[in-house]
Write a protein that binds this DNA or RNA. Sequence first.
DNA 1: AACCGTTCCAACCGCATGTGG
DNA 2: GCCACATGCGGTTGGAACGGT
Length: 265
Amino acid sequence: MGRAPCCDQTSVKRGPWSPEEDATLRSYLERHGISGNWIALPQKAGLKRCGKSCRLRWLNYLRPNIKHGGFTQEEDNIIFSLYKSIGSRWSIIASQLHGRTDNDVKNYWNSKLKKKILTAGETNTRHFAPDPTADFHFVSPSPPPPPQPQVPTIKSEAFLSSSLPPGCFDFNIPCILHSYQTPPILQQLPADVVAIGYNTPPVAEDASVGSAASSSVTTDNTGDASFLSELESSWTDLLLASFSEGGHQLPAAQEIGFLTNGEMI
DNA sequence: AACCGTTCCAACCGCATGTGG
DNA sequence: GCCACATGCGGTTGGAACGGT
């Protein structure tokens, strides 16, 4: 006995949507909005479609400001960076790209971008068509180089979170970006560090700095590092974690350690 | 022109998660 | 806390379009 279908499969139309159906759905939603019940919508709108199908059609195709096809290099970079960090969380990835749907991003990844990256990998390209003007550059998943010798911070610059890819922050806060050649000395971190991490052997097993078993060190000013626990340890991951945690109580100013196997992103 | 393989994308399916009673 | 239902999400599929032979 399988799962019960969400609607009567015999009385609903399936397959491609006709222009008339699109117009009916669009017109209904423009008049009534998405009032919270997709299941009841088809009947109210006079459509012989499953509610889930209506929802999908609206979200992926009819919704205003949807972009189709023509992904830019910058979008490629963002998709790859996020995929590398969080995997196939298409809705999250899509939320970082204005006007893109999860379905679109997923299709694009499966049909084009994955092959593009594999091709780039075969040619042993360290960087995948980096865009020098982009805020966010992608680093190909090549094996990490040997650990670097301990040297102090080599670069520090201020930036606004709004200069990061769209959606990373829903608010605009000043940040200070430090680049390290090696993991920072934890004891010297300022009190308002939100998240730090490194991808070399951990130096401390301490409740305030997270789990050594994950090969990462995390901390935040709220004392709650759990939101980072499932992420793989790399500075890229931690940067994204910090930026995607809009619900966290972030201080007015942040310091975020940032290391990518010795490379700046 | 006909056939065949490939690509691309809209749509479906079913599980996971959220929410209200 | 439990249950039922709605919604969200990611994997998969079907078929149209396209290109090569």
